[in-house]
Design a protein around this nucleic acid. Structure first.
Length: 274
DNA sequence: CCCATGTCCTGCCAGC
DNA sequence: TGCTGGCAGGACATGG
């Protein structure tokens, strides 16, 4: 669920809360959400470690811990990471609770349990969690129209599928890829390799624009997403096409269409996007 | 290389 | 009212 803007918002809201805190206790309710190491080792390795910084890479959230350790989270579809005080009522589907020395907690709640976490020495766990295979960060300086052109070159997949593939551009999911294609005026079924330079320039700036806008609005809360303080985002109020099948396009009034592409619902305006 | 499909889970909603 | 099928923001494996 959480795409780049949601994970970035969680990073920004959670970091000031947990910075410099030391993990004291770990309560594991669902061991299967821990991908590495074993639940027992996880519970043994974490206490005593201090949170040095948080960072985001694609849709992953990384906690840098003392002793050159990293705790890496992927929130799947419905995962939440929320800072709480111990007296706050516990939500259903709370699978993991980290308690810090001052008594504050971070709780991992995940209805569908697609989320997971990894703990280990930074470099090793980075690879183990698959972060070394992620594509370019869309907000980085290296992400230029030229770079996007290289990515699209020779690829005959549809743009929608390519944008969802984390090996090329990382952080886009179903919502922001649809919004970016709408913003660029490009049909989601267009083949990546057939874009001309002007399309690529538009797509490049559209990706940046929708991702930045998502962050400014604190992420998109359709059902489950909340930030590190448990608050909903506002970007659902600014979506142009996602989830708007049958409703008039905000630009031309043509009903927004929904189409299954690669098994995912895709929303687009058949008039504005060609 | 690309594609479609199935899988992991639970909850919600529309339709009957 | 209750049941059922389809769908949901992700990612991976599999077989063609």
């Amino acid at each position: 669920m959480p795409e780049l803007p949601e994970v970035e918002t969680i990073k920004r809201t959670l970091e000031p809360k947990v910075l410099e805190l030391t993990v004291e206790r770990v309560e594991i309710r669902r061991p299967d959400i821990i991908c590495w190491p074993s639940a027992g080792e996880f519970a043994g390795l974490l206490p005593g470690r201090k949170v040095l910084s948080l960072q985001r890479r694609g849709k992953y959230l990384v906690w840098r811990l003392s002793g050159n350790y990293a705790l890496i989270w992927h929130l799947g579809m419905t995962g939440r990471l929320v800072f709480s005080l111990p007296e706050a009522p516990q939500e259903l589907h709370t699978h993991l609770i980290l308690t810090f020395s001052g008594g504050q907690e971070v709780r991992f709640v995940d209805v569908r349990r697609f989320g997971r976490c990894y703990l280990g020495q930074s470099e090793k766990i980075w690879e183990l969690a698959g972060l070394d295979k992620l594509g370019i960060e869309p907000l980085s300086e290296e992400f230029t129209p030229q770079k996007l052109k290289e990515i699209l070159q020779g690829r005959r997949r549809s743009l929608k599928q390519l944008l969802l593939d984390q090996r090329y551009v990382s952080g886009l999911g179903n919502i922001y890829s649809d919004e970016a294609l709408f913003e660029a005026g490009i049909h989601p079924l267009r083949q990546a390799s057939e874009l001309i330079d002007e399309d690529i320039v538009r797509l490049h700036s559209a990706i940046r624009k929708v991702v930045e806008s998502g962050i400014v609005h604190g992420g998109t809360s359709i059902r489950d997403y909340v930030n590190g303080e448990g608050q909903q985002g506002n970007h659902q109020d600014y979506l142009m096409v996602y989830g708007r099948a049958g409703q008039p396009c905000v630009r031309c009034g043509t009903p927004v269409q929904r189409l299954k592409i690669g098994g995912r619902s895709s929303y687009f305006c058949p008039q504005c996007q060609v």
